[in-house]
Design a binder for these strands. Sequence first.
DNA 1: CGATTTAACTTGCATAAAGCAAGTTACTAT
DNA 2: ATAGTAACTTGCTTTATGCAAGTTAAATCG
Lengths: 135, 135
Amino acid sequence: MNRSDCPISNALDHLGDKWSLLIIRDLALFGKRSYSALQGSAEGIATNILSSRLASLEASQLLTKAPDPADKRRQIYRLTEAGKDLLPILLEMILWSAKHNPGDLAIPDDLVQMAANDRAGLLARLRERIDSDSF
Amino acid sequence: MNRSDCPISNALDHLGDKWSLLIIRDLALFGKRSYSALQGSAEGIATNILSSRLASLEASQLLTKAPDPADKRRQIYRLTEAGKDLLPILLEMILWSAKHNPGDLAIPDDLVQMAANDRAGLLARLRERIDSDSF
DNA sequence: CGATTTAACTTGCATAAAGCAAGTTACTAT
DNA sequence: ATAGTAACTTGCTTTATGCAAGTTAAATCG
């Protein structure tokens, strides 16, 4: 699993595929918490892939899975602190795409604006929203 | 190729695999410019994969390929401005791994320190190093 | 209470991407 | 002229992704 002792390589060992960061995005930015909500994402991940990615993210300790006390069919997926700490990476990806927008992207301009004015504050507010589940 | 109009998804459409960002890292942080130098990286990319990744990064306009005037066997790979703009993403990956270091990573402490003190200045200096090729 | 839905998966099979070893071509150095 | 180097490509095997259908347990509906 660890290809080298490079910190970038290490991050990519956990996140370097087409789906992991989209799942993190759904949890961190869209407040999704259930398997079916995650499956309903715009990009359309196959159910077996979602299952395997969730398992690997859980193994990497980026998220946790816990049964919903109110509905025993349901599992609740939550970001760990390490998972929440991926917010800056997500933000930089948004800013990069905003800057190099091929023209058809849905850029959240307010967020880009806040990032320019008060990056630290924005990240704090995004994290607070995760913690308080106020999406 | 475009899975959705989400900016994060867009970034991952170009970079979401195990190798692309390592190649960008080698160009941006280690000053590598040739095929053979890139192939010599710690992680050991297979030559056919390196070839296909370079082609896709070039197609995504993150790097350019140009013949070396001094040695006609040689091709020089360089980051475009869009490629250089990936520096913040690389930096955040380093910071994330530094914070969640599994214990065996080679963390550049000086860089982590500078990021904490003067992030914008650090990014400016890293970019300047690329432009002046002073590695 | 039994029948239908819903949630969270798993299984089996097809296709696409990654990885390995060897080979090719054009140029450079000896 | 000969040997080496740089930048690849080719053929084959292995692994990962993707699709469609099926399973299980719990909740809801009539």
